[in-house]
Amino acid sequence: MREKIFPILFIILVTFLEITVTTLPLIIGTFILLTVVFRQNWIFVAAFLTGIIFDILTIRTIGTTSTFLVFMVFLIFLYQNKFEIQTIHFVFVSTTIASVLFLVFLGFSSVILQALLVGVVTTVLFGLLSFYLKSSL
């Protein structure tokens, strides 16, 4: 349980940032990062609850963002059965593609630029996290 506290706090922080301050799809980057690193079923629960809160506070049809996030996590899990997902290339490409789809789905502008920025940030975080996990072992 202790290992989940930091990721949960991170999800809460990112969700409120995306709701109130920025249109950058930080939630997408966060969930891809967590799925790739942890690969555990609790991420489905977190994705579902985050989507519900996001929809309520941004006044969208409740459940739409949850559907998107749960399906995205599912696709990554599905992909890991055939390929290696803990690579920088996978994190960057999947975050960028998912961010583009999410921004189009929400109807925002500057889609490509925002998606690329989140892709880069998520990849850097993944690199740092991988380095930290390797060095702590």
Binding site: N41, F44, V45, F48, G63, T64, S66, T67, F74, F77
Partner: peptide, 20 residues
């Protein structure tokens, strides 16, 4: 092993859309 979790939460999400 992730299939049951996926199905539960995708069904819940769709259910929430209808309820909403």
């Amino acid at each position: 092993s992730f299939f049951p979790s996926f199905f539960i939460f995708i069904i819940l999400s769709v259910l929430f859309i209808f309820l909403s």
